[in-house]
Design a protein around this nucleic acid. Structure first.
Lengths: 211, 211
DNA sequence: CGGTAAATCCCCAATATTGGGGATAAAGCT
DNA sequence: AGCTTTATCCCCAATATTGGGGATTTACCG
């Protein structure tokens, strides 16, 4: 049973959504409110699994409300629903820790799917939103030619350890291999990345998102 | 009618997927191939609406194949399907212009949904992938808890040099100070950041956006 | 004026890293 | 059966880093 708390200022939509969610097997509607100013208190009271939050609300915006909720209960999943597809709203919502972002939809089943997805630890994005997010992603990282470097599994592991600031000894311990083997892997990594010190390798690894 | 071209090296999956897609109303399977080396030619020949591409293929990886296709026919939608959830693969796929990224799934309907979504100009991401993408997004733009550390001007300069992968000698040269002075600054930096090696300091500096 | 912070420089010794060899075993490919 | 890759291990010697001291100058603040 997934328990849900709904915030939606539009009376019509709130009531029809409530009706639908409450009547769906596997879902439990803990409450439906037109205002998010009390959101933190309500979350504390009902301990819902998922909060379904309209982005545009009087007094306190859905994003602000989510930020407040996440601050106190980071484990509560928040699903943003809205009619807005502005890049900046999407951006703000994601940065504030939204677990999903769906466009208000005539198809009620998408709500069930989205709620289930976020409840299970995934994220749910409406197709148009996903497209925008991926576009933003591309724009952000158009930068460097990814001269693709293929590190082996072990090499990646070792590199990951190095990024965590571990010394050869600690890496050896963490990967359960000998100091000498770590040394060998490091030599190979340096060769492949064309660097010759740990700090350089770490920076390059982060840049290239190899870890 | 949405026409589809399928690339999947696993015979079993290729055949069962072919069967399923070909038998679905509204979809038309133009072809199914185990190898993507001819992908560009095949796309030119069949002009599919959507290419369903496995990421791991012999000879030519799905991402490379997609890059080639997008170069010639940017309007063709490419849906990546894979068992991999590595950040770097997801990242590479998105940067190369993927229109969707789905985890190989026992539920065949998700394929139809995904194909339809990308055909309609949206993107489709499996929940776990969407979660990773949003996480990457957050990591990129939201700075972590700033336990404020006040580094002096010189210390910041030295740290910046270290992030560039420079050795003490090179830093000394770049800042026009002696090796010993660099050493002193480094000691102070390590003290302030509570670390005791260059890689750790670099990671912390990047995390804290001190540079 | 005295105190403090920043920046500069130096010495020493213990570790750690780097780069150069080389070797073996398992797995995969041709 | 050979070849390559990956992962594993070892030795040695040259550098580099780290951590512990201490010292001087400059500048700023009350």
């Amino acid at each position: 049973m997934i328990s849900i708390l709904l915030f939606e200022d539009n009376k019509n939509l709130r009531e029809s959504l409530s009706l639908y969610l409450a009547g769906t097997d596997g879902l439990w509607l803990s409450g439906a409110y037109a205002d998010a100013t009390e959101a933190v208190k309500l979350v504390k009271k009902y301990k819902p699994d998922v909060v379904l939050m309209d982005i545009q609300m009087p007094h306190l915006s859905g994003i602000e409300a989510m930020r407040a909720i996440k601050k106190v209960n980071p484990e509560v999943k928040v699903l943003i629903q809205t009619v807005f597809e502005d890049d900046d709203k999407i951006f703000a919502a994601i940065c504030a820790g939204a677990n999903g972002y769906i466009i208000k939809n005539p198809k009620a089943e998408t709500y069930v799917q989205a709620v289930t997805d976020v409840y299970n630890g995934g994220s749910h994005l409406s197709p148009s939103i996903a497209a925008k997010v991926m576009k933003m992603f591309q724009n952000q990282f158009v930068q460097k030619e990814q001269t693709y470097v293929s590190l082996t599994q072990r090499e990646k592991e070792v590199l990951q350890c190095m990024v965590k600031g571990m010394s050869y000894k600690m890496v050896a311990d963490a990967c359960d291999i000998s100091f000498n083997t770590v040394h060998s892997h490091v030599k190979n990594i340096y060769e492949k990345l064309h660097v010759n010190s740990a700090p350089e390798a770490v920076v390059k690894a982060l840049e290239m998102r190899l870890v």
